[in-house]
Amino acid sequence: MFLKKPMGPRAVTLPDGRKLTRGDLPAPDISRWVASRKALVVEAVVYGLLTKSEAAEVWNLSEAELDEWVSAHTMHGAKGLRTTALQKYRQPKGECA
């Protein structure tokens, strides 16, 4: 039996001490994206477990959508990835809530 060995690291250690592995990531056929799943994908990309192009290909995302997730996670954490918080967290910089 032959198992395909993935390119790149198998696990990364996040700044808070957690380990993130490829097994922790959402299934490739996911259809419902919640903030916690988005956060896992963003952390995998930011900390080098996956490349942006790999993530976009696996979950059928556009590079622009993935960039929006990364910037929202960087600015507001996992709460910024909630779809119900679009107005609160994703306003243009000059406007107040």
Rank of each mutant, 00 (worst) to 15 (best):
K88G: 12
R22H: 04
K4W: 11
G80C: 09
L66R: 04
S71G: 02
I30H: 08
Y89Q: 07
L50I: 12
V58C: 02
P28Y: 10
T83Q: 14
R18Q: 08
P28W: 02
L3S: 13
V58M: 09
R32F: 10
C96K: 08
V46K: 07
S71N: 09
G77M: 03
Y89I: 03
E57P: 00
L3Y: 06
K93T: 09
N60I: 05
D29A: 14
L49D: 03
E68Q: 13
P15V: 05
A11N: 10
G77C: 06
S62T: 12
W33V: 05
L40E: 10
D24N: 12
E43M: 14
V42L: 12
G94N: 04
A97K: 04
G17M: 03
W59G: 11
L25A: 10
A11P: 00
A55P: 01
T21K: 08
S36Y: 09
G17Y: 01
K19E: 15
T83D: 14
L66Y: 00
M75L: 10
D29L: 07
A35G: 00
H73M: 11
S53Q: 06
V45L: 10
L20T: 06
W69N: 10
I30G: 10
A44W: 03
V42Q: 02
T51P: 00
P6L: 02
L50H: 04
V34C: 01
V42D: 04
T74S: 13
L61D: 05
R10Q: 10
G8T: 01
G17K: 01
G94F: 11
A44N: 04
V12F: 05
M7T: 08
S53C: 02
D29Q: 14
K19L: 14
L49V: 01
K38H: 13
G23E: 13
W33Y: 12
E57D: 15
V34L: 06
T51R: 04
R10S: 10
E65Q: 13
L3T: 14
G94I: 09
P26A: 08
L25M: 11
G77L: 09
K38S: 11
A44K: 02
L3W: 07
P92M: 06
E54Y: 01
R90S: 05
S62I: 05
E95L: 15
G23C: 07
A56Y: 02
W69Q: 12
Y89W: 07
G77Y: 06
G23T: 14
Q87E: 15
S71P: 00
V34N: 12
Q91H: 14
P15H: 02
E63G: 00
G77N: 07
G77P: 04
M7Y: 03
R10L: 15
W33N: 13
S31G: 03
D16Y: 00
S62P: 00
K88T: 15
A64M: 05
V45R: 11
